[in-house]
Design a protein around this nucleic acid. Structure first.
Lengths: 177, 177
DNA sequence: TGGAGCATGTAATGAGTTACATGATTGG
DNA sequence: CCAATCATGTAACTCATTACATGCTCCA
């Protein structure tokens, strides 16, 4: 007997599920979803427009979203169905699975014997600065959020970003070189 | 005028480049490369067998590797060519590009209002334990490497892993809940 | 009124994973 | 010698990114 849907393995992938999550706030177009995903999740889950349309099409076929009529520029709004909400909840409670962390700089460092030292310094400096900027941004965001007096739960992802960037910077400063 | 090859954008992707890097130690079969990649790079750069064969095929066409004769089970050794070594070096000195960090647990936490608290605790506990185990393994590895009296440069990637896992654990323990 | 820029979606391509098939080796 | 396991590669599929096309708006 095949147990599809509400089983351990959810019926949607993480990207699709994220879209369902956003759609809980009301119908939206693919473009709008892509923009919101970028703004609200982009720091820890990248989603491109192409993915959005692909996943929406797939979910429409399976009845997880409903497609509205075409407006200007062929724009269509997508609406969350009850099945879609159920799928979202199923995904939400399923096993998240392992992190994917791919750091191109690390791969280079695995072959560091062969990197010209001056060039290495450049590469490292560039990356470090990018991380530093991100940390600054996160900290400002955190301050803003805290000033607004929001529930701590809403800053959990932000806190992760801060911890991550701090760790990376310490690695740069204390372990490298 | 098109500047291909030695330009800013390298002619191989990171995965292919990693294979070239491994091939510097001498010819090897696809299977052997996949095993070595898993062992030596797997902690920060996952490579599957299928990728290995695809990239090798592509690089063979472009003359970056040479294919030997078929042995038992159709096994063929691949050998690094001068062009391949040049491509590797080109990649090594090119801009690494940004990190890819995708953490399924974080995506769930972005929708945490809707997660059942008991289930949330389970999910978190499972993930935390996985990270803890990894940290332990890294520390043991580091101790072993240090005991062997190896150059510090060889532990840079390991140090990153330790920093990362430490940060994640602190996040679990101090920011979550 | 025309062109700069934003909105919207599609096509083509590249990268990564899972599942599969089958030949060799080897210990019991 | 036969069953388990390792070695080796391939095919099919899913997921992600880049490049492209074109319609709308608005203001100089």
């Amino acid at each position: 007997m095949v147990c599809q849907g509400s089983g351990m393995t959810p019926s949607v992938n993480a990207t699709a599920a994220a879209l369902l999550g956003l759609l809980r706030d009301g119908p939206q177009s693919g473009y709008g979803l892509a923009r919101r995903a970028q703004e609200e999740l982009g720091d820890f889950w990248s989603v491109t427009r192409s993915q959005v349309y692909r996943e929406l099409a797939g979910m429409a076929e399976r009845g997880l979203v409903e497609v509205g009529d075409a407006g200007a520029r062929d724009r269509r709004d997508y609406r969350l169905t009850d099945e879609g909400l159920a799928a979202f909840r199923g995904w939400l409670h399923a096993d998240p699975g392992p992190d994917v962390v791919r750091i191109p700089l690390l791969l280079r460092l695995a072959f560091v014997e062969e990197v010209a030292p001056e060039r290495l310094a450049e590469l490292v400096a560039e990356q470090r600065s990018a991380h530093e900027q991100r940390l600054t941004r996160y900290r400002e965001l955190e301050a803003a959020v805290q000033a607004a007096g929001v529930d701590r739960a809403d800053t959990v992802t932000l806190r992760f970003g801060i911890r991550y960037e701090e760790a990376v910077l310490r690695w740069f400063d204390e372990d490298l070189g």
